[in-house]
């Protein structure tokens, strides 16, 4: 029995027309990782201001529809949130945000950007002038 559709409209929308895909101007924190099993790559770049707010969030990457669409959704969600709020955004929240039910294998695709974000929050970009 086929479950609900994974490639829902909003998933495809994010995949085809992603939110802030590219380089983050004035980036202060960044991290990149991949899923060696399928070759999905996601990079998250953040500009965190003095008040501990994610003033700007961008992502970049290549890979399957699930990995890239979820990265776009996550980027949009954390834009403007505080670092503490982003840290509290758990894996379950990410799966909820994605919406469609995913099998364990595809959950890995969906959670790649979330993993990258959680590390990026702790990864100040060395040698980068802190714009502010």
């Amino acid at each position: 029995m086929n479950e609900e559709e994974i490639y829902r409209e909003h998933v495809l929308d994010h995949y085809e027309d992603p939110f802030q895909k590219g380089e983050c101007p004035g980036v202060t924190h960044a991290h990149q990782d991949d899923n060696p099993l399928c070759g999905d790559v996601v990079r998250m770049e953040l500009r965190i201001d003095e008040d501990g707010k994610i003033a700007d969030a961008w992502f970049d990457g290549t890979g399957c529809c699930i990995s890239q669409a979820s990265a776009s959704m996550l980027t949009e969600t954390i834009q403007g949130k505080t670092v503490d709020e982003a840290k509290e955004f758990a894996a379950d929240h990410m799966l909820e945000l994605f919406g469609a039910r995913l099998t364990p294998n595809r959950q890995k695709c969906c959670l790649l950007s979330w993993r990258v974000l959680q590390t990026a929050l702790f990864s100040p970009k060395d040698g980068e002038a802190n714009g502010g």
């Binding site: 490639y7 399957c64 529809c65 699930i66 990995s67």
Partner: peptide
């Protein structure tokens, strides 16, 4: 333009 996982997922349907 289509990742292998998306191909397999779609074919499974």
């Amino acid at each position: 333009g289509v990742h292998a996982h998306d191909v397999a997922q779609r074919l499974d349907k």
